[in-house]
C-alpha cells in the first residue's frame, strides 16, 4: 500500500507503456493508445505467496499476445518493470499463448492504485508477485535476470502448484 502524495503528479510520463529490449524498434503507447488495443475478459484464480488464494477474480486487460503482435524476437525471457523500480522476470513462454495480460479493470471497475492501477501484469498461473503492479513496460531479454523479489530470496519461477516459494524449497 502506498500513501498518495497530495498534489503530486510526476513528470516523466510521456510514454505510458513500452515494449523494448531484443526487438528492432521499441513499441510505445500512450495510455489512450493502449486502452484502444483489443481487450479480453479474464476470470481466474489467483495465488499469493502468503498461501492466500482468491477464486474466480474477474479482470479486463490486453493480452500480452496482443502487445507482442508482429514482433520478431529471439528473446526467451521478459522483464516486467514498474513505476517505482520494481521488476520481475518471466520466461516468455509463460506470458504468451493466452497466459498473461496487462489488466486495468478488476470486477468491472478501473484498477485502484493500491491494487496496481492503472495497469498491472496478470499472470494467474504463477504466484501473484509475478503480477507486477503499476507496470509500465516489458523488456525482452535473452537470459533470465533476477527481478526485485527474486533478488530478495524468492524463487525465480514461482509455480504455485509446485509450491515453489523461496530459494531452497
Amino acid at each position: 500500500m502506498s500513501f498518495i502524495s497530495r498534489g503530486f503528479r510526476g513528470k516523466h510520463r510521456d510514454t505510458d507503456f513500452v515494449l523494448e529490449g531484443e526487438i528492432d524498434e521499441p513499441k510505445k503507447w500512450t495510455w489512450d493508445e493502449f486502452r484502444k488495443l483489443p481487450t479480453e475478459q479474464v476470470t481466474k484464480d489467483i495465488h499469493c505467496v502468503t498461501k492466500w488464494t482468491k477464486l474466480d477474480t474477474a479482470w479486463t486487460g490486453v493480452s500480452v499476445d496482443t502487445i507482442l503482435e508482429g514482433v520478431d524476437t529471439a528473446a526467451e525471457y521478459v522483464v516486467a518493470f514498474s513505476y517505482g523500480g520494481y521488476t520481475t522476470n518471466l520466461p516468455l513462454e509463460d506470458v504468451t499463448g493466452g497466459k498473461a495480460w496487462v489488466a486495468f479493470e478488476f470486477d468491472g471497475q478501473p484498477l485502484h492504485p493500491e491494487h496496481g492501477g492503472p495497469a498491472r501484469l496478470l499472470v494467474p498461473h504463477l504466484y501473484f508477485w509475478k503480477s507486477a503492479k503499476w507496470v509500465r513496460g516489458l523488456r525482452l531479454v535473452n537470459e533470465d535476470q533476477p527481478g526485485f523479489w527474486e533478488s530478495n530470496g524468492y524463487n525465480m519461477y514461482g509455480d504455485p502448484w509446485r509450491e515453489q516459494r523461496y530459494w531452497g524449497d
Binding site: 502506498s2 500513501f3 498518495i4 502524495s5 503530486f8 503528479r9 510526476g10 516523466h12 510520463r13 513505476y83 517505482g84 523500480g85 492504485p113 496496481g116 492501477g117 492503472p118 503492479k133 503499476w134
Partner: peptide, 12 residues
C-alpha cells in the same frame, strides 16, 4: 523519500 501520484506513478 517516495512520492505516489493518485494513478500509482511513483518517484523516489
Amino acid at each position: 523519500v517516495r512520492l505516489t501520484a493518485d494513478d500509482g506513478y511513483q518517484a523516489q
